[in-house]
Design a binder for these strands. Sequence first.
DNA 1: GTTAAACCTGTTACCGATAACATCAGCCTA
DNA 2: TAGGCTGATGTTATCGGTAACAGGTTTAAC
Lengths: 331, 331
Amino acid sequence: MIATLNDVAKLANVSKMTVSRVINHPEQVTDELKQLVFKAMTALNYQPNFAAKALAANTTRIIKLIILEKVDTVEPYYATLLMGVAQALNEHQYALQVVTQKNADIGDCDGYIITGARREDFDWINQLNRPTILFGENRHNYDYVDSDNKYGTFLATSAAINDGYEDIIFFGIELKESFEYSRERGYMDTMQKDGRDPQIVRFGNHSSESQNYIETHWQEFKPNTCFVCSSDRLAIGVERGIQHMNGNIPDEFGIIGFDGVFLDQIADPKLTTVKQPVMTMGSKVAELLLQKINRALPMTEDHDVNRSNRIEVMFSPELIRRQTTRNYHRS
Amino acid sequence: MIATLNDVAKLANVSKMTVSRVINHPEQVTDELKQLVFKAMTALNYQPNFAAKALAANTTRIIKLIILEKVDTVEPYYATLLMGVAQALNEHQYALQVVTQKNADIGDCDGYIITGARREDFDWINQLNRPTILFGENRHNYDYVDSDNKYGTFLATSAAINDGYEDIIFFGIELKESFEYSRERGYMDTMQKDGRDPQIVRFGNHSSESQNYIETHWQEFKPNTCFVCSSDRLAIGVERGIQHMNGNIPDEFGIIGFDGVFLDQIADPKLTTVKQPVMTMGSKVAELLLQKINRALPMTEDHDVNRSNRIEVMFSPELIRRQTTRNYHRS
DNA sequence: GTTAAACCTGTTACCGATAACATCAGCCTA
DNA sequence: TAGGCTGATGTTATCGGTAACAGGTTTAAC
């Protein structure tokens, strides 16, 4: 039913090897034969056999996506990422295995994509003996892809300043992780450049915590304050807190979230947020990993901030203006 | 590095074939040899080679999960499902390909899991020439796995009755699909059995639509009304509408959602909802599909509502009481 | 006690692709 | 014109499994 290399070879009156070469090393075949082979391939709708390829190359053609985070409630963020990874992998005829804490990591693979890695995970990650790329910046010299967190909070803070908010407070995530440091730095630098006093408060990444803080510290916040948050979750909490205290959004109080995956749209009013191109980023990690596996690292991409051998790709996030900042009605 | 059948065979002093038989047809091998082989396998930590298996069996060991729905904003519902599918597939050494509208369906596979199928999709689905199981009940005689939708709305409606709400209105999804019919029937039957008049309104599955309806028809709703919704999305809209109109939840107005994936927890107050065991269901579809592929259909499971050859597996949903129905504080 | 059936284990071929090597033609050089 | 080189194509072996068949031994039957 499904055409093999052999079928194509017969139809084109050449050997299997020639067909294989047309696919993998076309420069070694004369144009004449190439035409014949191409014609045969399209005539038979040839699709290379994934398993045979893997077996011959002594690889698995399996990439594992390891999600290191409690997936009690599945994060839309990771789901989106997964879609991106899956798409890129499909294009290159690689299969995906999703590894969570529950299903142990059994069986071989050609490479790992790891997301949600925390400090304590690196001992374990070090033992992996396959090409690995992390999703999320880190200070352990691992290759990674992430959005430009510092630039993201720069965007958010600048927007808050431009919108004329007088006090701008940062709600961060209580986590000693690289991405959080970068976000805080983006906020601090932007504030200082404008001669303002930064103010940072930190929470576990739950809306209830930020909401509670808003409500219990309500009298400390003067109208005309903007809350720049390190996640949409925290931003939703802030929004609820303000609503419970009958504050006015966005005229008295502005809110800017971070991530732009699902939660921002679910919120009411919808959040102004720093949106990461998560799906694109997912595709990119996958593609970089495949490049790394194939030892061919063109590394000529515009995005690449690559001086040493380390791969560090940062995607620029984008400020999405919606209903929790003043400018909403003007744009 | 990685042990093969051959390595195991050598260590156990038998032929490859014997080892293979120990794995696939253990009844054909004497206990004595089996012990030897087992010992060798554990000593070498033998893991079967996925690709070789696939090649020898003339299969792909790839299962495609086709998500037929705009994934503009990725639904946490599908993400959870995907996790379940991935887990079961990993256990059986099958690889997963996620197919969305964007990445066309190229390449062979051993079977399909299709979710989000609508009326108009079935022409296309008919052409698939591999074992297929749908996620979601259907009237096209396809095998499927779903939650028991009728039972779900029975649970919801009964709860509303028990909680003493006088008017109970059903907010349905404007879709001529089987699952929606079942949910409406569960509501209607339960209402009629209690001698009440059913009342159904339908919307596109967006919170804005149900919210808008609540606000524009506010005077029609008497206090002591419960809204039984066909999705958590609609329920969130209802919640917002009531809040905007300053209605009291849950004393004057109750809300019960459906799905129990993520949205119910994000809502404020948190939704009472009919929760589907989505992850478990995902694992089950995968397992059933693998059974179907291997032509071995034990079909002795308790869940199976199987009279003909058709596979119809229904999972019982569960009512999760939270803050949008009265009983919340009592439990 | 011969013969066949049953049972266990090993040998061979094959799945579909690829690397490495072999072959053969054409061309250049001395 | 012989020898060697280059470049294009075919042949062989191999990846790690499994089905089908072959060979050898034990058991059963008449």
